[in-house]
Write a protein that binds this DNA or RNA. Structure first.
Lengths: 222, 222
DNA sequence: CCGCATCCGTTTCGATACTG
DNA sequence: CAGTATCGAAACGGATGCGG
């Protein structure tokens, strides 16, 4: 008689998989890396799964101490899910795993690309030149906002509008992904209407230019 | 209509999980980190699953380019499974994931601890003092042999007997795990019969002593 | 004995519908 | 908006079979 679905293995790898190895679990963690999200937002961005699976995972991840539910302040009266300190320690794991996964063949179409994915990519590849910043950029993708804080050679990203931005960019994840590493297309994208920019356009462009040479999302194996 | 079980997400994390996200897949990769293994050996050490699941995973991992089958030389006429170069790149991912997982609560009893687990632990925590080595140590756990090559402040581990050892130790994973970081117990363990040692006993002891202070397998979260 | 394949009961997943 | 309920399909887990 099996004791639930634990691997019952003292190995740290197996114990990690006991906690975050179920289907969709790590993608939920990914979505929470930049800050708390509500149920409907998770559901929207993880569109390939169903609501009961998300609910199950959230329950399990909370029971295992990876995430926690939190009640929003007064008027909203709604709940958000956020990583615990332990859950936040998954970030380096996800970054190296994601880097490894980029060498895999592309998934079958139609494939999605979400806001968190491109923002993770931006953050992991951007090495802001300290002499050109600090700056605050608002990034709106698929109708949700993030704030990018660029200072001291760091690029920090948080959900929501947590600071007054010097400039804003509004587009979709796919277009934003194409703009990263090809910042020269920014002007064109604006004219075409694929991108909207407010405030200081130069700071947007400078942000996009801080990304290392960057191969495209690739299907090659080395 | 779902296209198989792909996440259909261009994110590297999701693409990695498309490849190694199925149950038991990463534990199979773990078992191959130190070199090729045969089916029956995988089955023996991953005792909590059934043979068909292992066979399925091996097929999928091979199809996805993570592992490859190889025919052993003449007399054996048997097959082994080994990581491809791409598969070997999972090692840092597994190490950080395993480190994270050690902070989880212990799995329900009865829990196993396999040879690869303790050897991974040894290798990730040992920082050999270059002045005390080089040396070659044969480690036999649960009847299978590994060779530890200690040189230039590195500890390299391979399956099988790949070099002539200065000393050999023979025990079970649990005892070996307890000995790591508590090398003073070596003499006692030998007398009790829990450990067998051949050749230079001092080199065994010196190897065990190269592990950093090392908390026990812990259930604490930081 | 090794390397699986087949069968079968149980659990999980995925899609849709439904409720407070 | 934030989930729960239901149900068929797929995957898992255990046992057994079977050719080399």
């Amino acid at each position: 008689m099996p004791t639930s679905r634990s691997y019952q293995d003292l190995c740290g790898i197996a114990r990690a998989l006991d906690v975050v190895g179920e289907r969709w679990a790590l993608l939920i963690v990914r979505e929470l890396l930049f800050g708390p999200q509500r149920f409907s937002e998770l559901r929207r961005v993880l569109a390939n799964t169903s609501s009961n699976v998300i609910a199950d995972r959230l329950r399990e991840l909370e029971a295992n101490g990876v995430i926690q539910r939190r009640q929003l302040s007064a008027p909203a009266a709604s709940w958000v899910y956020e990583l615990t300190p332990w859950g936040r320690q998954l970030e380096p794991v996800l970054l190296t795993l994601g880097l490894w996964g980029l060498q895999s063949p592309l998934p079958p179409e139609p494939a999605v690309i979400g806001p968190t994915t491109v923002l993770l990519y931006l953050r992991s590849r951007a090495h802001p030149d300290p002499t050109e910043f600090p700056a605050v950029v608002r990034i709106e993708l698929d109708g949700q906002s993030w704030t990018a804080l660029i200072h001291d050679g760091q690029l920090e990203i948080q959900v929501g509008e947590t600071a007054k931005p010097d400039g804003s960019i509004r587009t979709d994840p796919k277009t934003f992904r194409e703009l990263i590493g090809a910042p020269s297309q920014l002007q064109t994208a604006i004219c075409v209407g694929a991108v909207g920019v407010d405030g200081d356009q130069k700071v947007i462009r400078r942000l996009l230019e801080q990304v290392v040479p960057a191969d495209q999302i690739s299907s090659e194996r080395t």
